[in-house]
Amino acid sequence: MADSRFTNGKTLGTGIGLRVPHYEHILREKPAVDWFEIISENYMVAGGRPLAVLDAIMDQYQVVMHGVGLYPGNSDGLDMDHLRRLKKLVKRTDTPWISDHLCWGSVDGSVSHDLLPLPFTFEVARKTAANLKIAQDFLEIPLAMENVSSYAEFAMDEMTEWQFLAEVCELADVGILLDVNNIYVSSVNHDFDPMEYVNFIPSERVAQIHIAGHSRYERFIIDTHDHPVIDPVWHLYARAMERCGPTATLLEWDASIPSFDEVWQEAKKSEQWRKQNATENQPGGDDAAA
């Protein structure tokens, strides 16, 4: 189980990403969802409907902030204005932790709006960790880094992706948002064993887990979040739960978004995998047993 300093002592069950097509259903029906994850940048506005919806949702639900624009791997540093906007939203949402992606995304102020891959070198790990320390100190809230799906590797890599993720998070002393779908996507694109990745991760740092679907092409996979979760990803999830114990779990569905009920049913499958896991592995995860 994650050390409480990475979760602010908050225990959450199953959640889904808060998405525009579901606003009306959620506000009207108030479904029994444990929590919603919001894309931080969608609510970094001065006013209007986004914040009105967010406030209405927060009357009923716990929300957790998940960003796409921190870019801790930017070698020219963090955007302090972005950190200020994040902090303002942190105060509004009372999020127990905040997550973003272990990636880079902009150069000299020009923004890619993508989650770009980092070279897995010790120097990049050190610089990225330095940025994350600044961010976490400034935000005054636990920060978790998500592993991204990737489609390219760098010639200068000095370690595996899982070693890099652990190195950065330990250097910066931040948590991990483990996206098991992203692990699967990258494992196919880069030809590695995804279970080795899951087995290596420092489980005490895993504050949250993401599950999602993807699109398979002939020669690669793209992380599109537009399909149900496939069985190999559920198996990675089960193993992650076995290692990490009860961990906040969130289903992402961002394109071709079906009805709320369909998304929620897919997310709730994670509870079956957790129950199955708990039954098979009493009293706890392998790390606890060890």
């Binding site: 930017n74 070698s75 020219d76 540093g77 963090l78 955007d79 302090m80 204005d81 880079w104 902009s106 150069v107 000299d108 102020g109 070279p119 760098f154 200068m156």
Partner: peptide
């Protein structure tokens, strides 16, 4: 818009550029 870094930072790495 300008990105505000406040702290003097090195230029982007060649691989990022």
């Amino acid at each position: 818009r300008k990105i505000n870094r406040e702290v003097t930072m090195p230029p982007p790495e060649p691989w990022q550029q």
